[in-house]
Amino acid sequence: MTQLIFNLFNGVIIGAFYALMALGLSLILNLSGVINFAHGGFLALGAYLAYSLMPHIGFWGALVAAPLLTGLLGIAIEWLLIRRTYGRDPLYSLLLTFGLAFIFEDVSRYIWGAQSVPYQIPALLSRPLSLSYFFITGYRVFMVALVALAVAALYLLLTRTRIGIRIRAGTHDLATVATLGVNVRLLRSVNFGLGVYLAGLAGVLAAGQLGLQPTIGTSLIMPSFVAIIVGGLGSLPGTLLGGILIGVASGITSVYFASATEAVIYVMMALVLLVRPRGLLGEEGRLQ
């Protein structure tokens, strides 16, 4: 029983990471039509930046600064490279971001080494909250709370601010948004930065749980794509739901059939697509 709760809880945590990653991927995919394979690279970068900043500004400072810096770097890369692929064959952006992912991983290895680095989380957060459920550490609860906070902030941004409303409108019909006086080039840059910020935040949090090595992003990116497809293309609530569902599914599977832990998410995707090709909350016709 304890083990089931343990794995269920782990599933929620890992699902929260998938969801945070997938939300960023989804934002970028929906507005710019780019499948950002470099997203895992941005996640790793956020984590390493936090690692390097921590001795100077502490964990809490790094938690604020590292995702912001990652987001700014994302905007720079979008402006320099990625926007040149807009409106072209999707193959260009796939190749570009795929290449960027490799570059990020190798640069991380070059700067910070191929081995895991010691990533310190505050002692305050590493204590278990209860003796019988020793695995519920403050850090794990903190991570879930922070992901929930980030999702709530994203929701408010997208529904209560003009820029967020324009991002949602652009997802639907970007050309019409442009004819209403909105600088869509800038909108896409900001949106890309926002998506990458979420990846950076996921990285800062994930490193404290999973350890930090150059491949940290690679293990999270495929499940995040699966989360988007399970939740349904074009739907951010769907993406969130998809992320948590596949996290929990792999958590539960690890109790009863440990070797299928990774396979189960793909099985889930196949089942969802068979029953409901547009995903759980996806818009009709989005894939056409």
Partner: peptide, 24 residues
């Protein structure tokens, strides 16, 4: 510009639709 087929933002509420333009 009022485009052919109106092209309003079906995923937004009416209020939100009116917040998209950069008002002069």
């Amino acid at each position: 510009y009022v485009p052919e087929g109106r092209r309003i933002f079906g995923n937004l509420t009416l209020d939100e639709n009116l917040l998209v333009p950069v008002a002069r």
